[in-house]
Computed example of a mutant assay.
Amino acid sequence: MAKSISVDHALVRKAANKYFLRSYGGDRRPRFTSPYPLFPAVRELEAKLPQLQAEIEELMKQRELGRYEDIDPVRAAQISKDWRLYYAYVLGVPNEAARKDTPTLLEFAEKTPGVVSAMVSVLEPGVNLDPHAGPYAGILRYHLCISTPEKNPPRIRVDQEYYTWKAGESIVLDDTFEHEVRNEADEPRVVIIIDFRRPLGPLADSVNRWFLRTKREASSKMIQLSNGDY
């Protein structure tokens, strides 16, 4: 049976997820929340928004970002083959190309405690992310919108709640709930995604750090594939 490059250690992961979510409020945990109480360091990143926008605009001119089908075909078959991603930093491993492509994002990821991964996510017109749930509960997911269509802007559903992106605005979502996205506009939606460690008690946080270290082996491969090096 084919395995996902980004999903492994199924039995241990399932037990860890249950432990993390129980420690974080169970089903009462928020679907969306402001980033600043949980991840205040992002204020520094957001202060550099024009720089980020310019770097990502140039990246998209110079490079065709990797299709999710080419990065992780097993997960892509469940979510979207045509979702485009550029990994600047994955599980503590930097994409060396990002030192030129997205230096502001990579610098932030490398120096900021708690950052697990940082990437550029592009959803082109007509591309949807089918209903799915994140496989690992040890992280929360931060979105900073770089650009989004003004007419008929796409929105994300997390469980039964919705959020519509606006350029320059940010949100944190808990992707362990079922979520989906539809882009029915005529322009792409571009966001920065940063996964950071879910705030947990000392014991649960130690377990989370250990588990994230065990997943690091996939990092270099994911970076390579998102760079288009097949």
Rank of each mutant, 00 (worst) to 15 (best):
R155V: 00
E180C: 11
S80F: 03
I146E: 03
Y136I: 11
K151C: 05
P73E: 12
I171K: 03
N183R: 05
A97H: 15
V191T: 12
L200A: 12
V115H: 05
L65M: 12
R141I: 09
H179K: 09
T176G: 10
F108C: 10
D72R: 01
T112D: 09
R197T: 15
E64Y: 01
D195W: 12
L129W: 03
E64N: 06
S206K: 14
D72T: 03
L65Y: 01
G168T: 06
P135R: 03
A133Q: 09
S121K: 05
A88V: 09
E69P: 00
A76K: 13
Y136W: 14
Y68W: 05
N95W: 00
V116G: 09
D174G: 01
Y163E: 02
S147Y: 05
V122F: 11
W83R: 02
T102F: 04
R197S: 08
P73A: 11
R67L: 13
A109V: 06
R198K: 13
I71C: 05
A88N: 13
P94N: 01
Y162T: 14
L91W: 10
R189G: 10
H132K: 06
E124R: 06
L200G: 00
V207K: 07
D130A: 15
T148V: 15
G126Y: 10
E96P: 01
V127I: 15
D82C: 00
P135S: 15
H143Y: 08
R157E: 10
P202C: 03
K111V: 02
L144W: 06
I79L: 03
G201W: 06
V172E: 01
L123A: 12
R75C: 07
A137P: 14
E161I: 00
S80N: 13
D195A: 04
F177H: 05
E107D: 15
R197Y: 02
D72Q: 09
L140R: 15
E161F: 04
E110M: 14
A97E: 13
E124M: 11
V127T: 12
V127M: 13
E96S: 05
V115F: 07
I193D: 08
E169F: 03
P153V: 01
F196W: 05
V158A: 04
L105A: 06
M119T: 09
V190P: 04
E184F: 09
V158H: 02
A118T: 12
Y163P: 10
